[in-house]
Design a protein around this nucleic acid. Structure first.
Lengths: 332, 332
DNA sequence: TTGAAAGCGCTAACAC
DNA sequence: GTGTTAGCGCTTTCAA
């Protein structure tokens, strides 16, 4: 019922090897033969079976993508970068959500390897030791996109999160702020607990400003908790004049809470977020934000993976992309 | 080098058929044998090759997902619904972006069929005749999620877009509005040109209100064009008192333009959007919005597909999901 | 309850 | 340039 390479071969009076050559663009085919085969392919509407091809060639032209949650704009943007480059190199993507759950990550890694993907791009906010090990054991290359891991031998693509956060705090300090708060996402994520928080502390200390634990609030990263964050500062009798927000969503929550408390942004309180999603310019005040090049991180990760797949030399397996600060209206 | 079913069979002193039975949970295996095989599988870290299995069984447990753009929150939400249910039924997802481009859609359909997916869930804002035909020709079931097509024989999952839009306009009318504008996305998308616009006109006519073409503005759906939309009304000397926005992003643009022109929302102009993304409650004023159950549309589409794959009887191939209007602060 | 053997549809030597 | 043939790793009859 379905047309196979054998049917085409018979109809075209050639061997299946020749059909295979035509289909795969092998040059060792006489033009006349090629033409004849192509005609039969068209007439029979032959569509090569990628599964059979995969089994025979040990290449599936599929790559696995494991991310925490596709419905989160941040990961979606990154995924789009991955997919565009994958398409460019003729790979397809098998996408799965891990919900940032170690067990799921491990299962997904296993499932994808079972599906014989040629490689994997993974994104995880907290790479556990077990996951790191699974990555090391993988028979196919795995690139970590926008994820932090100690092991240099595992390919990664990131920006310098520490420096980026440092720049933001420094910007506040330069403006004369002394009451600078940090409203963070989960602190057990390395990017938050180590880089953003670390940079926050270092910048403050370097400016001889006291690091007040009360000014550091770890939320779950949602809008609703960010709102509570500002209120809790006030309850403690604290009134920050500048806030470094771990994400755009956090920034929004904080800003609305500030406004609800009768203060203005940026006049009374200045806010800088860490993300710069599309949202940042579609809200009022528009968010001053550290611009995470999410699409690029995804794209470069996939590009790096293609190099690994082609066994090309890669000078640096740990790519650091540039970032910038987008100045808008949540700062003066 | 890689462990195959044959290695396991040899080590366990059974035939590969028996190993296959154990792996596939076939009950016709003596418990003792099963145990022995399981041990060897564990010891050898045997991982079944899904490609070989796919070739032999003609089932890949992969389903294709074709959407316009994963970086757009609307499609991402839908995709998450698809993926969750797919995972529940042990399917993996091959995801591709079509950018709402007919040629790409056709190519993707073809690629996925070549990869022998067991089924496809597709989302398209404008299903062309060629694409409809390709869907009909498909050897595997295809479900259209949140997409409009004339042909009842193609399975779909939607809400009643016409009625939903009608409700929104009716709400404005009931409040006594007479100058009601419709800022739309591309009108060549059936959902816009036929349903939202159609409902807009019908509701107005039914209330004996004049349908003024000047009050109908077709944008490309972006925030920036939505901003221009309000300005263009004003330039024409028109000042709508109520605006029906085709999406949350359009609503945001319109609202900001209104505010920039010195008017207030909802006091001077009321706005209702059509989408209710997470955004809707994270902006000020919070958006009154027709709540599209995007996640559910995705989930139900995938569920419908599993039924089709299992050759279950499906009473209704064209599923209509309920919707609601979320009243917030962009209306009085 | 288990095994033998014939494919699934294709690629990739190797030979001619 | 083209054909022959041996797998790729698994499922699935069919026998035993």
């Amino acid at each position: 019922m379905t047309v196979t390479i054998y049917d085409v071969a018979r109809e075209a009076n050639v061997s299946m090897a020749t059909v295979s050559r035509v289909v795969n663009g092998n040059q060792n085919v006489k033009p006349a033969t090629r033409k004849k085969v192509l005609e039969v392919i068209e007439r029979l509407e032959y569509r090569p079976n990628a599964v059979a091809r995969g089994l025979a060639s040990k290449k599936t032209t599929s790559i696995g993508v494991i991310i925490p949650d596709i419905s989160n704009n941040l990961y979606a943007e990154l995924t789009r970068g991955i997919e565009d480059i994958a398409t460019m190199y003729r790979y397809n993507i098998i996408l799965s959500n891990s919900d940032q759950n170690e067990t799921k990550e491990l299962e997904l890694l296993n499932t994808m390897l079972g599906k014989q993907v040629d490689g994997i791009v993974m994104m995880s906010d907290h790479v556990t030791e077990k996951v790191a090990n699974a990555i090391r054991q993988s028979p196919v290359p795995i690139v970590l996109a926008g994820s932090i891991i100690q092991d240099d031998s595992i390919p990664t693509v990131n920006i310098d999160y520490f420096q980026a956060a440092f720049d933001a705090i420094q910007l506040f300090i330069n403006k004369g702020h002394k009451e600078i708060a940090f409203v963070s996402g989960p602190l057990d994520y390395t990017i938050n607990g180590e880089f953003k928080l670390g940079a926050y502390k270092k910048a403050l200390q370097q400016a001889n400003l006291e690091v007040n634990q009360q000014f550091i609030d770890a939320t779950d990263g949602t809008y609703d908790e960010a709102i509570l964050s500002w209120e809790s500062f006030n309850k403690k009798g604290l009134v920050p004049t500048a806030i470094f927000a771990g994400s755009d969503e956090i920034a929004l929550g904080v800003i609305h809470a500030i406004q609800d408390s009768g203060k203005r942004v940026p006049e009374d309180v200045e806010v800088i977020s860490f993300e710069n999603s599309k949202l940042a310019r579609m809200v009022r005040p528009r968010l001053t934000s550290i611009a995470l090049p999410l699409y690029d991180i995804g794209a470069v990760s996939m590009r790096l993976l293609t190099k690994l797949l082609n066994k090309e030399e890669v000078a640096e397996k740990n790519v650091i992309l540039p970032y910038r600060i987008e100045i808008r209206n949540s700062t003066k």
